[in-house]
Design a protein around this nucleic acid. Structure first.
Lengths: 190, 190
DNA sequence: GTCTATAATTCGATAGAC
DNA sequence: GTCTATCGAATTATAGAC
């Protein structure tokens, strides 16, 4: 996966670049990486396929650009330990929904089922997002972080990939209310 | 996806058919459907690629044959409601591990991230496996079943797809012990 | 039942004109 | 910066000899 990128400072180039990224993200989300063709993205973006390679170097480079995620760690210092599950649930539910960074996360989740690099990036995201919020001195913190990660991934997978209807019907607050106790049980468990 | 299948009653044909299925399942699990080529399967099975098409009609047909799952519903009538989470966890953990039906489930899980049909089959499997074991008269049973499904899928995804190290280190009993309380909290929740 | 040879597509990526 | 034309590789699937 080459990460270099032809810089295009002109306004026109920038506009094309953005329309490519939008089209790519949409295709990657709905069809996955493998089944998405550069040609289809180009058609959606009303741009020549050759331009995509020019801008992003390769299909892999485009994928990287479309799934670069910058996450801001929320402040949870003030959250009492018994409310951590619900706080994490609220954070996760809102994170995965919407365009930024939800879309990139959903793309990455789907891709991680086929690509080892994408899987490694998912692991890295969660290692940075979950572990820091576990109470200090908690036993088995790495395992608990993995269990919490699994639950959040399961929620996202059930909702956005498998499309379990009852999950799709949940609004964010209701989802957090349902997810919270299960996350909390991981923290409270022996 | 054509499901017809050239019947091959001869012993030699049967043996070839089985070696193809073994090789296919192995490839599908480790590389996913898209990146697995009929040629690679044929090479693993020491058989000509044309034979695979002859036996299974198409790559899709082979995938179907390799992921046909027959699940026996465990008896849980005698399990008290407060132990249901742990019982479900034990059942799920052992189901996903091993060769039968674990291998087919793991293949299907990976494929469901890319293929809508596979996703539908995963939904169907869980609808049949989880819903019947929820206590009668429980409110929001469809939603609770989906939440339980999500947790189990998350566990499987974290362990077998993303490969979260702390989960890989768990033996079946320890995994069930960790998973149980979280599943139970879905049953106990308001 | 098995294999050789190849058809028919499709894809990512490149070269080069404008 | 954009597009036309095309290359070269890889794939599934088929036809037909043995």
């Amino acid at each position: 996966m080459a990460s270099d990128d032809t810089s295009t400072p002109t306004p026109k180039g920038r506009k094309s670049r953005e329309s490519i990224l939008r089209a790519a993200a949409s295709r990657f989300e709905s069809e996955g990486f493998e089944r998405t063709t550069v040609r289809a993205i180009a058609k959606d973006a009303a741009i020549d396929p050759a331009m995509i390679i020019r801008y992003f170097g390769s299909k892999d480079g485009l994928f990287l650009a479309a799934t670069t995620i910058e996450l801001d760690l929320p402040r949870m210092d003030a959250v009492p330990e018994r409310d951590l599950g619900h706080a994490l649930a609220r954070h996760a539910v809102s994170l995965w929904d919407g365009e930024t960074p939800g879309l990139a996360l959903r793309i990455l989740l789907r891709a991680s089922a086929q690509d080892a690099d994408a899987a490694a990036r998912v692991r890295a995201v969660f290692a940075a997002q979950v572990l820091p919020f576990l109470p200090g001195g908690l036993a088995d913190s790495a395992l608990r972080a993995s269990l919490i990660t699994s639950q959040i991934l399961g929620y996202a997978f059930g909702r956005y990939v498998i499309a379990l209807d009852p999950l799709l019907d949940l609004d964010p607050e209701a989802a957090a209310r349902r997810l919270g106790p299960s996350l909390q049980s991981v923290i409270d468990g022996v």
